[in-house]
Nucleic acid binder design. Structure first.
Lengths: 131, 131
DNA sequence: GTAGCTGGTTTCCTGTAGGATACTGGTTTC
DNA sequence: GAAACCAGTATCCTACAGGAAACCAGCTAC
């Protein structure tokens, strides 16, 4: 529902002293906004991180590994992530049904990014504590 | 369909190789949560990205370079970022007063992370478009 | 004197993300 | 029969992020 954004790149094409800063900037910002949209919210990134560490994981198990998340939110976010091709959902026809979630190869491309986020958080934490 | 292998996560056997997953995971997740808290919300990351590209930037100029942000939100977020040591605010006693915002060296440590986010967004965009 | 620039603040309003809680429906164990 | 586990749904509710618009004070140029 986003990205109907019209950017008038030609709006003021009569001799610009500087570049068209806003448009120029917007072009840089948009991809970042895309990522934020996909991974935004309080929990999605943590879910991915959890799956990164845990590999294939069942629903309840995942919920336990992310302290504070409720079933509803986890369920919703998992759906979102699945629709975006980040994770897969596999149902096993076992006694009490089991469902396993796993990152897709595509989802795994988030690894570098997420580890970066985590690492920065660690540094930040050190900094706060040592103040 | 009978007796597929059950996953005995609580196998009655002696101390399992598996660590205390929840606690272990939480320890991994917390730094990421810290980062998300600092940079969370719709705009903060974009502000930092804007300053990364623009260098020292004045308020209105910054607002123009981030399409869609309102003055109020920009003002609030800038305060937050300043309090967290990510940016500095400098007031110049000129004719109409001018204020410039700039990343601190600490704020600049976010560069790698933010570029990573942007880059992933670009790949994601490609993927969406080529579907 | 009035219109514009600067960098904001204040007020009001709304949407929705996310929390709490209860429930389903099947299966195994006691 | 009761209780516990699984993977969720359904409902209800609230807090707060964020948007729109008006406003402020100081200065300048016309």
């Amino acid at each position: 529902m986003a990205s109907n954004k019209k950017i008038d790149q030609k709006a003021s094409s009569t001799s610009m002293p500087e570049l068209d800063r806003p448009a120029e900037c917007a072009r840089h910002l948009m991809p970042a906004m895309d990522t934020l949209e996909l991974l935004g919210g309080k929990w999605k990134l943590l879910i991915v991180l959890g799956l990164l560490y845990g590999g294939k994981t069942r629903f309840k198990q995942l919920q336990k590994s992310i302290p504070g998340i409720t079933g509803k939110v986890l369920s919703n976010d998992l759906k979102d992530l699945e629709q975006n091709g980040i994770i897969t959902r596999t149902v096993y026809d076992t006694s009490p049904i089991t469902v396993e979630y796993e990152l897709t190869p595509y989802g795994r491309t988030l690894e570098k990014l997420i580890l970066e986020i985590r690492e920065w958080g660690m540094i930040h934490r050190q900094r706060i504590l040592s103040e």
